[in-house]
């Protein structure tokens, strides 16, 4: 059981990292949203497995929240939004996909090095989990940095949040209240950002955040 549990947890967490890479090379909005749903499904599976392996039943609730909110509701809502905004075709990436992927590989290597050293005497399950979680967080940030479109920045932010949840479940001991509040905060952030997107669109006829900068003063 012990060896197998570890291996499966590794596989699921590693799968999350892999899906993060998939997010990085999507060049269509609808594809991006589907991959994000997959990201949430893998997260949910990983959390569920942690719940089983650690014997912590409250983590099942976390997994269920992740599945319902992030794998179904949010992608569907974003999809509707993207179609209504008419931006489902293009993704405006900064820098090529190739260099971004290479950078992502570097980030994963960095987080492995850091975490395996920093948590050398921790429980192996938690340690590897944390290393993968940090990779997911960094890849999420990388995505936010390398995308011009507000919707893909939102997706990057949500995948970053997924990484945080992965880290929290691996660390065993995050109380349920905190998890629920994290989940709801993400939902609220999502709503706010959605409203915000429409406001941007109404005003500027685009959701490219670069358009905001033209309306600011200064030496842009």
């Amino acid at each position: 059981m012990g060896k197998f549990a570890l291996d499966l947890a590794h596989m699921l967490a590693g799968g999350l990292v892999l899906v993060s890479f998939m997010l990085l090379y999507q060049d269509r909005m609808s594809g991006l949203l589907r991959v994000f749903a997959l990201h949430a499904v893998v997260l949910s599976a990983s959390v569920a497995w942690q719940a089983y392996a650690q014997g912590a039943p409250h983590l099942y609730i976390t997994a269920a929240i992740a599945l319902v909110l992030k794998a179904i509701i949010i992608p569907l809502a974003l999809d509707r939004m993207v179609v209504r905004l008419g931006v489902h075709r293009s993704i405006d990436a900064v820098g090529g996909i190739g260099p971004t992927m290479l950078l992502g590989i570097g980030l994963v290597a960095l987080s492995m090095t850091v975490m395996l050293r920093a948590a050398a005497d921790a429980d192996p399950l938690a340690r590897e989990d944390l290393a993968f979680a940090l990779s997911v967080v960094l890849l999420g940030m990388l995505m936010m940095v390398t995308r011009r479109n507000a919707v893909s920045q939102v997706v990057g932010f949500m995948s970053l949040e997924n990484g945080l949840i992965l880290a929290a479940t691996g660390a065993r001991g995050m109380p349920l209240v905190v998890e629920i509040s994290v989940a709801f905060s993400v939902l609220i952030a999502f709503i706010v950002i959605g409203v915000f997107l429409f406001r941007i669109r109404e005003r500027f006829d685009t959701v490219d955040v670069g358009a905001l900068d033209e309306y600011r003063g200064g030496n842009q």
Binding site: V114, L138, M144, V145, V209, D213, G218, Q220
Partner: peptide, 27 residues
């Protein structure tokens, strides 16, 4: 003064680069 007039993405990049640099130092 340049720092006052950057895009959202550039600010995010600053945070990102700072984080990666700190992690690199730890590594």
């Amino acid at each position: 003064n340049v720092l006052q007039f950057m895009t959202i993405r550039q600010y995010l990049s600053l945070v990102f680069v700072a984080l990666v640099a700190l992690l690199f130092i730890i590594a």
